[in-house]
Design a protein around this nucleic acid. Structure first.
Lengths: 193, 193
DNA sequence: CTGTCAAGACACAACGTCTCGTCTTGTGTA
DNA sequence: TACACAAGACGAGACGTTGTGTCTTGACAG
């Protein structure tokens, strides 16, 4: 069909089966080993049903992940900036070192290198909202005088999180909570009044 | 042949043609569009000749890049730490924003996600030697009292360079010399005595 | 009764292996 | 030193395999 499909008549059972099969297969093997045919077979679904609703396997994964990641989007504010940052970043370390999430997190970033649509969706739904929340938390601290007024908070966020992505993607060393502590310690001493 | 090929009888002309064709094709199209058959055809070479000497297209690119990157491996030491860092990092920005290098740099990192051999080679030949040189330059500054004695220099290097990789791979914002300036400025104020 | 569904056939592209016949190269012999 | 020759690297491309994305079919649900 060249015409756009009708979402009202969509079979929810098939959608669920496809998303679940994609995550299931991705945790079993590598992202590279994930195929449309594999997903279709494992979900008990025709290939056309997949191609009707998703343009690529990366799009499937992105939807599956977004669905699960929507929860726990809030950045804590206990009044203790260090503790809040540490808690949030430890959580990210947990995700990055989780074999399942690690596999498809890397897979999505890989897909984003060649597929601009995936790149944009990844940024819009996962990365940027969380960066924004971190900036807002830092802004409160800045207003409270815990951070120098001239510091660009967007740069601080990059400084905090980039080393985690760096290690995850380049495999120079394992992502760890020790790394988080070192990074926070150095960055904090650079932005304190 | 199951036996290993004899390097002494290797045809240098074919090797050159393959490496050149790989770089050429990689700059023309995307890394994903790079195929063994394409390289073979473009180099005027049989596929077997490629498979005899390289296990994957990533291995070809790695060798081609290493060959060119060997030069200019030294980290400058003009006595001015800030200027030295800035110069070296501007150079990296230039590479990352170069369309050709950008394409196969990203390609190599992508390949490293699924191929441990590529990952190891990438680290050993390109990443770690340069990280080491940066650490050594920082160590001199530390001995000269420009950096606090308790600062872990390996973390500093990650803090400096990770944001560039972060932007290159996640496409949150363009890699730029302005970013370098912000990062250096924040990091320096965190490590000064 | 229109459109989605599961199933699978289809043409295409790239993979990695293989088999040719040709040409090159290192080595042993004179 | 000169040369002959076997080993093997070469270009070309056929081959079976796998995954791609599209199309067709008949069943069935909104």
């Amino acid at each position: 069909m060249a015409t756009t499909p009708n979402p009202d008549r969509r079979n929810e059972r098939a959608r669920r089966a496809i998303l679940d099969a994609a995550l299931e297969l991705c945790s079993t093997q590598t992202y590279a080993g994930l195929t449309m045919e594999g997903i279709a077979k494992s979900a008990g679904v025709g290939k056309q049903t997949i191609y009707r609703w998703w343009p690529s396997k990366a799009a499937i994964l992105l939807e599956a992940i977004t669905e699960r990641a929507d929860q726990s989007l809030d950045f804590p504010d206990t009044g203790d900036l260090l503790a809040d940052l540490r808690g949030q970043m430890y959580e990210l370390v947990r995700l990055f070192t989780d074999p399942m999430f690690g596999a498809y997190g890397r897979g999505l970033i890989v897909a984003a290198q060649t597929d601009p649509a995936i790149s944009a969706a990844l940024l819009d739904t996962l990365i940027r909202p969380r960066v924004q929340l971190c900036i807002e938390r830092l802004a409160k601290a800045q207003q409270a005088g815990e951070i120098r007024a001239d510091v660009d908070l967007a740069v601080v966020v990059e400084l905090l999180y980039a080393p985690l992505y760096y290690r995850m993607l380049l495999h120079t060393a394992p992502v760890s909570s020790e790394q988080v502590d070192s990074v926070i310690s150095l960055v904090m001493s650079g932005i304190r009044p």
